[in-house]
């Protein structure tokens, strides 16, 4: 008891007094959690993938240029000319597919466990929005390499978006930034992909996590329920 606190303990105490680290730790990490299984880790796995996508995505913008005359060459340069460019782009590429998969599995788990019910309806609704936005990230990111596959996938995708009656053609024109896919399409998909959608997602994830921490994790359903 009378032992003098070490330097790191003293520094922690100093920071704790000002930041309230112990309180944060108690609320966020020392929460009461029911006896659960591995399926309950899918949300955390998705969050990890989101952070990974943000980090690798930010680093890709160091070399990527969203214009028709340079986009393809800059991606080529990342793959051939930049040290570990293949790794950064590779993680972003595979992370994207895995994120869609994990968001979907997370959603299935919540659905089958009935965890979307009272009082967690808002958490579920925000989660559905996050699922749609994740698909939006996949759709907008697919065009950015500006190769044949990207071009035609976006041609088809924006055409599909135009199928509703009356407003359909307008949706296609707004997505493409005009009649056909052009420099305007590329730059608006880039803006959506790196600023608008991820910004919105970060905000919604914050609310989603707040709700998870505030309400807590639901028990797995039991027989007599």
């Amino acid at each position: 008891m009378t032992q003098k606190p070490s330097r790191t303990q003293a520094l922690y105490a100093w920071l704790d007094e000002r930041l309230g680290l112990t309180t944060i730790n108690k609320l966020v990490l020392d929460r009461k959690v029911p006896k659960v299984n591995w399926w309950y880790t899918l949300g955390s796995a998705t969050l990890f993938l989101f952070i990974l996508q943000v980090v690798t995505g930010i680093f890709l913008t160091v070399y990527y240029v969203p214009t028709p005359d340079h986009a393809y060459d800059s991606v080529n340069y990342i793959m051939q000319g930049v040290r570990f460019g293949w790794l950064v782009r590779g993680i972003h590429h595979w992370g994207a597919s895995f994120m869609v998969l994990f968001v979907f599995l997370h959603m299935l788990r919540v659905f089958y466990m009935g965890a979307y019910k009272y009082p967690r309806e808002l958490t579920w609704m925000i989660g559905v929005l996050l699922f749609v936005l994740t698909l939006g990230m996949g759709f907008t990111g697919y065009l950015l390499p500006w190769n044949q596959r990207a071009y035609w996938a976006t041609t088809v995708g924006t055409q599909i978006a135009g199928t509703p009656p009356i407003i359909g053609p307008w949706i296609t024109r707004i997505l493409r930034g005009g009649e056909e896919i052009s420099a305007l399409t590329l730059s608006r998909f880039f803006a959506l992909h790196i600023w608008m959608i991820p910004g919105l997602m970060a905000l919604l994830i914050a609310v989603h996590l707040y709700l998870v921490i505030r309400i807590g994790i639901s028990n797995p359903p039991s027989k007599d329920e």
Binding site: V62, F84, G85
Partner: peptide
Amino acid sequence: PLISYFVSP
């Protein structure tokens, strides 16, 4: 690798 990636040029 990210550091190496950034200083690469």
